[in-house]
Structures are given as structure tokens and as C-alpha cells.
Write a protein that binds this DNA or RNA. Sequence first.
DNA 1: CGAGAAAAGAACCAATTAGTTACTTAAATC
DNA 2: GATTTAAGTAACTAATTGGTTCTTTTCTCG
Lengths: 218, 218
Amino acid sequence: MTRVTKTSRPPSPPRIRDAEATKLRILKAAKKEFAQNGLEGGRVDAIALEAQANKRMIYHYFESKENLFKIIIEQAYIDIRSEEALLNLESLPPKDAITEFVRFTWNYYLKNPEFITLINNENLNKARHIKGSLTLREVSKKFVARIQAILDQGAQDGTFRAGLDAVQVNITIASIGYYYLTNSYTGSVIFNRDFLSKKALQERLAFNIDTILRLLCA
Amino acid sequence: MTRVTKTSRPPSPPRIRDAEATKLRILKAAKKEFAQNGLEGGRVDAIALEAQANKRMIYHYFESKENLFKIIIEQAYIDIRSEEALLNLESLPPKDAITEFVRFTWNYYLKNPEFITLINNENLNKARHIKGSLTLREVSKKFVARIQAILDQGAQDGTFRAGLDAVQVNITIASIGYYYLTNSYTGSVIFNRDFLSKKALQERLAFNIDTILRLLCA
DNA sequence: CGAGAAAAGAACCAATTAGTTACTTAAATC
DNA sequence: GATTTAAGTAACTAATTGGTTCTTTTCTCG
């Protein structure tokens, strides 16, 4: 167990010390790496390299690969809900609010493809990282309440059917976008058409809005 | 590079030699292993153990882990389409045919959970294993034609709207089932309800049939 | 300013794992 | 029944990789 101590070292640029910045760089790099390669496929070394940090720092700040992944997943959920809350859907008429929500969901998936892959991965892992996260339960509760309020208002003014369940509706809205995008690779091969062309994406969004309105409207 | 040659070996039971049976055992074990752990997470050693075969045999028959995976994926698609073709949907009135198709898709996912995980995995791999599979393209072409025929017939007898695209409709049918099931783990945590209880599953199927009929009917 | 704390880094380790080599033996063929 | 073919096996290797140890450098605060 002898250790060779280096006596001379090539001159290195002065290191900047900034814990917060390093943490952020690691988180960003980890998000990218895990989105691209999954939890198992993601490499800690790759994260360190991308973050321009030493691997040791990852363990210093985040304890383990698993824990880092957990933080990334939790943040991904918080991010989408924060952005959605900014839409102020409750200030729109119910039909417009839902249309806008379908559009937002779709565009969010498109602009943040790592979101889909990360959630997908967490499901492959049976949600073991977010199990027990009170934060996420709280965030989601408020989210469901927002959607339910829109549905209820629509039912009251006669736009929508009565008795719609916000969770089922939300799952449906998420699914018709999410599935199309996650399965666009096999879809493109099997159905022999480009699922990701600009035209195809536009058509799918229109189809999805139509699907949801037909589902909700009285 | 000296190699120790065993001079005595513990007596082993006589080996039965059956190439076809061994191949099948490997395929079955691989399907299970890849479904559970993905392409990257799946272990060749685990497959060999489960198949009661030597690892060497896997390479002998299937060349590589990747190639084995490719065969599994291709077969998964062929399997679902074969089973669906047996339904003889074209002999039913359009509305019944679609209802039955939604039900079949849902039940197939439930009874063959490995199907979802495998396809999911192939998409994480950007469909690189099935790219260029003429077999799959052929199988899917026939499949789309079957669904389109039902939609067209429905349009003609006034049950359905005209101009519906079988690919979009099929994606929608697949998505509202597939997403619910793949995301049932995170869904259960976030929405604080059991997505996989018997009652929840029944309700979701009913909801899905309703969604699709509202989408299609005139 | 100087001493201690915290941040950063290099080298290492132990475990894992896809794939290979060299061999044995059961069955098919003549 | 000898010979050939192919099924089967065990042990090994080379590379990878999550995580650790120990050292060095920078910053902060009395």
C-alpha cells in the first residue's frame, strides 16, 4: 500500500473556488448525462468531465450517484410545475385554459426532452428515488387542484361535462403527447414516416387539442 | 499465459444436447432480463444462469448481446400483431371493433408488461436495433391497413367522422394505455393513489374506451 | 497575517462484466 | 464402431467504473 508522492507537477491554471457554482455545474451535467444514458448508463466520470469538476466533488456534495439522480428527478418535477403555474390558466375561460394547458404540456416536452427521459428512467426504477418525497406530493396536489378548478368551472358554465376527474384528464393530456415523443423512434421506423418533422409535430398537437376538447366538452 | 488443465472433475449429470431448446431457453431468459433491466442493465451472465445455459452458448447462437436484444425486440412486435390479428376485428361493426381493439391493447400491456419495457428501452436506444427491419415494416403496414379499414367503414356507415388517420388514432389508443402503465410508479407516488389496483385499472380502461369513442364518433 | 477549514485534485482500488480461449463430450454420419 | 461435427463447459482477460484515500491549494476570519 505504498503511495508514490509526486514531487514535481506540471503548472496548472489557478483553481477558482466556488462551491455553489461547482454544485450547479455538477447538477446541470448530471441532468444531461442521466437524461442521455439513464441512471445505470450514466457515468459519474462523464458528469465530472462535463461539469469541469473532479469526481471527488460529486461525492463530496451529493454523497452518491443515486442521491444525485434523486435530486435531479425531484427538481425536474418542480421545474415543470413552476413553469406551468406561471401560465395563470385560472384567469382564462375553461376551454381556452385547457387548450393552453395541452399546448404547454406538449411544448414543454419538446423544449425539455430530458424531462421525458428522466421521468421514464425513474419509472424503470419503480419510482424508488421519489418515493416518500413530501415536496413532490405537495407540488402535485396543488397542481391537480388547479386543473380540477378549471374542469369544475367549465362544468358550471356548461362548457364541459360534469364529474370529470382532473387526475384522469391530466394523465390523458400528458400521455398523448409523452407517448408520441418517447416512442417517436420506433414509431418512425414502424410506420415509415418521420414523427419529428415540423409538420408532423404541428399536426399531432392539433390532433391532441381536438382529442382533449372532444373528451371534455358537453 | 499458462493454463491449468483440470485432471479430475466432479462427476456431472449427463448433458442433454438440444440446440433448439437451448436457444429457446436463452431467448426466454433474455426477454425477462432485458425487460427487467434494460439493454445496458441486463447481464449476460444472468441470462445464462436463468436459461441454464453457458454464457458461451449465448455468443455461439446469438453473436452478441446487442444482437440478442434486437431479436427480442423484433419478436415482441411480431407477437403483439399476431395476437391482435386473431381478433378478427373486421368482422365486427366499426364501433365494437374499435372498442374491442382498445380493450385488447390495454389487456395486452397488462398481461405482457415486458412488452412495454422492451419497447421503451428500444426507444431509449433510438430504435437502432429495428432500424432497417423490413419484417417489422411489413407487419405494421398490414396492421395500419386493418385499423384504417375499420375507420373507413365507420365513416361510411355514419358511425365515425370522416378523414380519420389510422396512425394518429392508433398512437392515441396505445398512448392512453401505455403511458398510464409505464408511469404508474411515479404516478402513484405523485398523485397519492394506487394506479395499479383492480378498481383503478378497470376505471382507466372504461375512461380510455370513452375517450376514443368520443374522438371517433360523428 | 497566519492558521484552520473547505474546496479541489490525482491516483488508486475493488468489483463487475462483455466477450474469448482452450478444452470436453454427446450425438450424427458413414 | 470409428470419425466427424457441433453442443457444452470452465477459466480467463481486458476494460470499465463507482467510490475512496491522501495530498494540495485557496479562501476566510480571528
